[in-house]
Write a protein that binds this DNA or RNA. Structure first.
Lengths: 144, 144
DNA sequence: TGGGGAGGTCTACTATAGAGACCGCCTTCG
DNA sequence: CGAAGGCGGTCTCTATAGTAGACCTCCCCA
C-alpha cells in the first residue's frame, strides 16, 4: 500500500467530473489495454515474436477480425511493431516494442495479484450467488 | 523485467489454446477489472467510502445502470462491500473490502506506467496516424 | 489439381453499453 | 398544501462493439 497511496493521489489529480476523460491517462490507458485481448497479446509476445497465425493459435478463441484489430491498435499505440518479410509468401512478425516491454512489469504485478486472489474471488462469487440469489447465472441481466 | 519474467512464466502455465479461459486467472480477472468502470470505482473508493450518488458524481459519465451493475459485480467478487443504513431515507455506502484493498498495489503500478507512458503512446499514435493513414479517425472501423 | 497455410477483409448477427424515463420514499421550500 | 428535488435504484430502447465464419490472394507441395 506504500506506493499505492501515492499513485492513487496522483490519479486523483485528474478530475473525473467534467468530461475530463480525455486528459486522464488512466482512462485512456485502460481503454486501450483493458480490453479483452490486448493484454493477452502482450503476454503472448512477451516471450518471443510471433507470426499472425501463431498468435491466432496461441489465443484460439479470438476471431481473426479482432486479432487484426487488436494488433493494429497495439501497433498504433507503439506497444508492438509489425515486420513484414518479403519472403516467397510474405511473412508477418509481431514483436514487442520497448514501450510494450515497459508494460510487462506493471502487468506482472496484476498477474501476480490475479494468481493470488483468484481463489478468493471465486469464493466470494460463490458466496454471493448462494446467499444473494436464487438464479446464480448473472448478478445483473437484461432479462426480458 | 526481473519479476515480470517470472510472472509471464507463471501465466504461461495456463494454456490458452483449448478453451481454457475458464481456468486462466488472468483472463478471468481481466474480464472483471479490465472493463471501463471497475478500476475507476476502485480508485474512487480507495480514498474513502462513497455513497451511490457520490460515485455517480465522481465519475459523471457513467450511467446509473452501469454504475449499479459495476458495483454489483465488484461486490459479487468480494472487492467492495455494500452497507445499507436504515436511516430515514435509507442510505447506501460502498467501501473497499480487503480483497479490493489488495488490488491497489498492483493497480498503482499500472497507473504509474500509464502516467509515465501516456505521452509516448500519444506520440506513437499521432505518428501512426500521420504516416500510415489518411483517415486518422480510427485504425480499424466498420465503415459501411 | 487441389489441398493447405499464411495474412488478412467483409458481411451478417448478436450481445453489450449508454441515454434517459420512471419509481417509491422522504425532506424541504414556497 | 402542493411542487421540487435528492436518494438508490430499475426499465426500456437504441446505438455500438464484438463474434462467427465465409471469402480472398498468393504461394508451396505432393
Amino acid at each position: 500500500m506504500s506506493n499505492a497511496s501515492s499513485a492513487i493521489e496522483r490519479f486523483s489529480r485528474y478530475p473525473m467530473g467534467e468530461s475530463q476523460s480525455v486528459c486522464c491517462p488512466v482512462r485512456d490507458v485502460l481503454d486501450r489495454i483493458g480490453d479483452k485481448w490486448s493484454m493477452l497479446m502482450i503476454m503472448a509476445l512477451a516471450t518471443r515474436p510471433h507470426r499472425f497465425s501463431e498468435l491466432h493459435r496461441a489465443v484460439h478463441d479470438i476471431s481473426k477480425r479482432m486479432l487484426t484489430q487488436t494488433l493494429r491498435d497495439l501497433e498504433r499505440d507503439g506497444l508492438i511493431t509489425r515486420h513484414v518479410f518479403p519472403t516467397k509468401p510474405p511473412g508477418v512478425e509481431y514483436r514487442l516494442a520497448p514501450l510494450g516491454h515497459s508494460l510487462l512489469d506493471p502487468m506482472a504485478g496484476l498477474i501476480d495479484w490475479a494468481d493470488r486472489c483468484y481463489g478468493d474471488i471465486h469464493a466470494a462469487r460463490a458466496r454471493f450467488d448462494g446467499t444473494h440469489g436464487d438464479a446464480p447465472r448473472q448478478a445483473f441481466s437484461n432479462r426480458s
